[in-house]
Computed example of a mutant assay.
Amino acid sequence: MRLRKKPWVKDEIVSYGRLVVLDPEKNRGQWKEWFGNDQPIHIELGTGKGNFITTLAEQNPSVNYIGVEVREEVLISAVRKAANKGLTNITFLWFNITKIDEVFAEDEVSRIFLNFSDPWPKSGHAKRRLTHTEFLKRYKKILERGQEIHLKTDNEKLFEFSLNELSNNDFRLKNITLDLHNSKFEEAKSVMTEYEQKFVSRGMKIYRLEAVYQ
């Protein structure tokens, strides 16, 4: 873990105890033991300020949630939300997603959420997109077969790119929508990220899909 911009963040993060795991590699293969139960584990990669994952954790106490975020200036907002809600089925990792398979063991994760990831629009930056084949290889190492990746984005080109990458990497696509908030998927649009709330208020389309690891 590297402190980059705000020296006070580390002290505050440490003060939240089990809400933030500072050395997550040590829990690889043992996350259910860490939570103290056999509940499924759902992770959000790029959790931002945490509205999405803390809302899910509040609504679904029978699921354990882990939010992964490398930017400490936004992660602290997510941790505060979880603390204020008194959640016990959630924790956060201040960690770089590129090393996600060093944190979770094979079949340890039951769902992955990718919400409004950086689209990296330049073609030369394609490998940085969180749905690039190289990232999907990492996800396949940790995701149980038959389980899913759920993706939301406001970026049409990233959505098209993701459809192709997922289809070419052993994922079966379902529940695809090009305009989530004018669709039939009521549950999927009931919990929003901060970005999503802003985009929807502006009348922007939200693209969404579910991808099953076969």
Rank of each mutant, 00 (worst) to 15 (best):
K49D: 10
K49Y: 01
K49M: 14
I53S: 05
L56I: 07
A57M: 05
E58V: 01
E58T: 02
Q59I: 02
Q59R: 15
P61T: 10
P61D: 10
S62Y: 12
S62P: 07
V63A: 06
N64S: 07
N64T: 09
I66R: 06
V68R: 06
E69C: 03
E69K: 00
E69T: 00
V70I: 15
V70W: 11
R71A: 14
E72K: 13
E72M: 10
E73M: 09
V74R: 09
L75R: 01
L75C: 04
I76R: 09
I76T: 12
I76Y: 11
I76N: 07
I76P: 10
S77F: 09
A78S: 14
A78Q: 08
R80L: 08
R80C: 06
K81V: 02
A82T: 05
A82H: 03
A82Y: 01
A82K: 11
A83T: 02
A83Y: 14
A83N: 09
N84Q: 15
N84I: 05
G86S: 04
L87C: 12
L87I: 14
T88G: 10
N89M: 08
N89T: 13
N89L: 11
T91A: 12
W94E: 00
F95M: 01
F95Q: 07
N96M: 09
I97W: 00
T98S: 14
T98K: 15
T98I: 14
K99W: 13
E102Q: 15
E102N: 15
V103Y: 00
A105W: 06
E106C: 02
D107G: 09
D107L: 05
E108P: 13
E108G: 08
V109A: 03
S110R: 05
S110L: 02
S110D: 14
I112D: 00
I112G: 01
F113H: 09
L114M: 08
S117A: 15
D118T: 04
D118W: 13
D118I: 08
W120E: 02
W120D: 02
W120V: 03
K122L: 11
K122G: 08
K122V: 08
S123F: 00
A126F: 03
R128P: 01
R129G: 07
L130A: 09
L130D: 03
H132E: 04
T133Q: 08
T133A: 10
F135R: 00
F135T: 00
L136C: 02
R138D: 07
R138L: 15
Y139L: 10
K140C: 07
K141F: 02
I142G: 13
E144F: 06
G146Q: 03
G146L: 01
Q147E: 13
I149R: 00
H150F: 11
K152E: 13
K152M: 11
T153D: 04
D154P: 12
N155C: 09
N155Q: 08
E156M: 12
E156S: 07
K157V: 03
L158R: 05
L158N: 03
F159P: 10
F159Q: 11
F159N: 08
E160A: 14
F161I: 12
F161G: 06
F161D: 11
